[in-house]
Design a binder for these strands. Structure first.
Length: 294
DNA sequence: AACTCAGCCAACCGCGGCTTT
DNA sequence: TAAAGCCGCGGTTGGCTGAGT
């Protein structure tokens, strides 16, 4: 990405990146950062420390605003920034925390060490909101939140458990007092299965319009639809996330393209798990039926 | 091979709150 | 106490990439 940015805006064309006439007068540069700029900013932060971004912007000689410097530091240059796929644990945590705090990205990010609010926000928008769109309901609707709580999150927990069972040494570490493992409001001891979780939630809260049979059926739908892709590399590349319902498992394209889908119960390695689809067509179909019935 | 499109992510923008003067 | 400046947050956008046609 950085190479990408660097090639896009070579130092020799920097003068071309001033957006407005006003920016040109003030010599404010916008757009992707170059390696030189990164080095300069890094050096300045090492010298002056974090904070006082406007001062850093002017001391550094960078033709950037303090805001831009801060953003670049927080989202990219900070030494503890984690890169790579959002893990299942992180996904679950994001869902949990979002259900509690909503779009408080920076607050959520505090519980995901190394992840930035921007990254989490992007994850939410690209993955989770896509699911809502496919279910033809609003991401903030009760239906969608229920779907997350009663199907997706239990399903994620199952995946995490089976993953950690397969890798005995990689027990799930919960950063905030088992928040992710048990869901506090569910008050479920241990790590319930999706069925258990659904019943516990409904039985305990009593406030949800998600009835017992619905939960049960959803859980059955979720657990019985353990379809995972096996076959061509094309299929593998079609599975971008653990969420994506249309992109990964048994999509029309993968089937038509000669890939094979199979139900399986067995060992799934972490890499496959990351890519595996948790939300399958039949789950979506089932939920949509429920939503329309409402 | 060329084109289109969707996904993804880095970066920008606007706004509100806090701090300083 | 009011005004100005700064910082941080959440929403939005622009552009690259890769898959599909």
């Amino acid at each position: 990405m950085e190479a990408r940015a660097a090639s896009q805006f070579s130092p020799f064309s920097m003068s071309g990146n001033f957006c407005s006439e006003e920016d040109q007068l003030l010599e404010v540069k916008k757009g992707p950062w170059t390696e030189e700029e990164d080095a300069l900013l890094l050096n300045c932060v090492n010298v002056y420390g974090e904070g006082r971004w406007n001062s850093i912007a002017s001391f550094s000689g960078l033709k950037r605003t303090g805001k831009s410097c801060r953003l670049r530091w927080l989202n990219y240059l900070r030494p503890d920034v984690r890169r790579g796929n959002i893990t299942l644990q992180e996904q679950l945590l994001i869902l949990e925390l979002h259900s509690r705090w909503g779009n408080r990205w920076s607050k959520i990010a505090q519980y995901l060490p190394g992840r930035t609010d921007n990254e989490i926000k992007n994850y939410w928008r690209t993955r989770v909101q896509k699911q809502a769109k496919q279910m033809k309901c609003d991401v903030n609707s009760k239906q969608f939140r229920d779907a997350m709580r009663f199907v997706w999150m239990p399903r994620l927990r199952e995946r995490i458990e089976s993953s950690s069972a397969n890798n005995a040494s990689s027990a799930m570490v919960d950063p905030i007092n088992n928040f992710a493992c048990t869901t506090d409001h569910h008050a479920a001891a241990g790590h319930p299965t999706s069925n258990q979780t659904a019943y516990q939630v409904v039985g305990k809260s009593g406030s949800s319009s998600f009835d017992r049979s619905l939960c049960s059926e959803m859980a059955i739908a979720a657990s019985s639809s353990d379809l995972s892709y096996s076959g061509s590399t094309q299929g593998a590349s079609l599975a971008p996330t653990a969420w994506d319902p249309a992109g990964s498992c048994c999509t029309e394209s993968s089937i038509n393209g000669g890939g094979s889908c199979s139900r399986h119960e067995g060992l799934i390695d972490e890499g496959d798990l990351m890519m595996e689809n948790l939300w399958y067509d039949e789950n979506i179909w089932f939920l949509q039926q429920q939503l329309f019935d409402d």
